[in-house]
């Protein structure tokens, strides 16, 4: 069963012979024309990520996707292993299916599993997550040309910009939608 809707972030759509999760949807206006919506799409089977721009209001066919709470357990080097919270059922996803999300996954991380016809196809993480800074240059002053920010490497290897006052070992909260610093934890 399917229905059509306008494109918004978070829904899954049928597009180009595949099922895609809309991971971002931004208004764009070419000025002298109708409004458009620039989306980032993630293929739920292959993990492939693409950009596509629709005219705002264009109808797209939606696909029902289940979203259940889960926990990330570990990676065996090839696959990523998870456990569904309600059923304690364990399952694995390929590195391609996990895609970009792996930069947020630490053992025992709480996350969401997306299922298509009962098959786990993809993983999502909460919008706000806590991490420890594993390395960042010292110094309160830093380079003033970079807007008062410096780079910090987090436990997962993810690199984000943080304010100059933060030090190694401190816990921070980040926004996973755009990989930006939110606050100290």
């Amino acid at each position: 069963m399917s229905s059509t809707t306008h494109i918004v972030k978070g829904i899954a759509i049928a597009f180009k012979h595949g099922t895609w999760l809309v991971t971002d949807a931004q208004f764009v206006s070419p000025g002298k024309g109708s409004a458009f919506t620039r989306t980032k799409l993630k293929n739920l089977k292959t993990g492939q990520a693409i950009d596509h721009t629709f005219r705002s209001g264009e109808s797209v066919e939606t696909v029902d996707v289940q979203r259940n709470k889960a926990q990330y357990l570990y990676s065996d080097g090839t696959d990523f292993h998870f456990m569904e919270n309600d059923t304690y059922k364990q399952f694995s996803l390929s590195a391609d299916a996990v895609g970009d999300m792996k930069k947020y996954l630490l053992d025992d991380t709480d996350c969401y599993i997306l299922k298509l016809n009962d098959n786990p196809v993809s993983v999502q993480v909460p919008a706000k997550m806590e991490f420890t800074i594993t390395s960042t240059p010292p110094g309160e002053r830093g380079n003033t040309a970079t807007g008062g920010n410096k780079e910090a490497v987090l436990e997962t290897g993810l690199v984000i910009k943080v304010p100059l006052f933060l030090k190694e070992g401190e816990k921070i909260i980040i926004n996973t939608e755009n990989d930006t610093y939110v606050s100290k934890a």
């Binding site: 764009v28 070419p30 002298k32 024309g33 109708s34 458009f36 620039r38 950009d51 596509h52 721009t53 629709f54 005219r55 264009e58 109808s59």
Partner: peptide
């Protein structure tokens, strides 16, 4: 199929294949 005018086709092509 859902585009109504020449300009909408122009912009959809421009935004998908040229601007990026």
């Amino acid at each position: 199929s859902q585009l109504k005018t020449w300009d909408e086709i122009f912009f959809k092509l421009f935004l998908n294949f040229i601007e990026p």
